[in-house]
Amino acid sequence: MNAIEIKGLTKTYADFTLSNLNLTLPSGCIMGLVGENGAGKSTTIKLILDIIKKDSGTIKILGKDNQEDIKCTKEEIGVVLDEVGFPDCLTAIQFGKIMENTYQNWDNAVYGNLLKKLSMPGKKMFQEYSRGMKMKLGIAVALSHHPKLLILDEATNGLDPVARDEVVDMVCEFTRDENHAVLVSSHIVTDLEKICDYIAFLHRGKLILCEEKDVLLTEYGIVHCTFESIQEIAASAIIGKRETAFGVEAVVKRKDIPAGLDYSPVSIEELFVSMVKEVK
């Protein structure tokens, strides 16, 4: 079963359109939604959760259309948005009591263990937490009702490297169960590269690529060559290029470059930036 299945999703605003989005996240996988600010990542997530209304298309979550009893479906989803919007005056213990009366499957033992593991003070008010602590509390809440799907929207933004690493570890731990899936959006591509099985590139409301990460890393490479050598490569094989005083650096499709031409592995970030520049 697919954790998320999106077909022909469209949402139009006065100054932005998310157009004809098709995306499938299989169960047991982590998908990274990559895109610059304003690319449509948060809009996509809000549409999945039915926080905003779509213009057209279908969205299935865990096999169920999100227009059919989304309230029930949300029992099986854990969500962390870029702003963990808990009231400032409440404490982690109070959030636990609120959530105990919110989720049918809320597990106080799991929540307590996560708070302990993350060294979260139970009686400290939310407003006194650092951004990293707020995010970690958001994730603890999102994981304590045994969800099957975890959705993280820019959850690592603004965190220091240690906190980011802890968040990444929690996500990896969650996906040890093969029935669990994660959709994580971020513009910090290096985080996604560490954990994702699938990468989807969004640019100005359009999906420009959705592929398995390993396929991307084996299919594309970077060529460092002279101005003359680049002419030998077919234009269709070049995803993007950067000219410097010393030569050309080009992201290329490995199978389409002349034999014998050296290339080095490409990072997801380099690939994304090249593709976006090419689209521009």
Binding site: I51, K71, K74, L81, G85, P87, D88, M99, T102
Partner: peptide, 18 residues
């Protein structure tokens, strides 16, 4: 007003409430 200030108006919708 406090809900709006802390973004609960959006965040509250991720939980199983209509």
């Amino acid at each position: 007003g406090y809900d709006e200030k802390c973004h609960w108006d959006v965040y509250g919708q991720v939980f199983p409430y209509s």
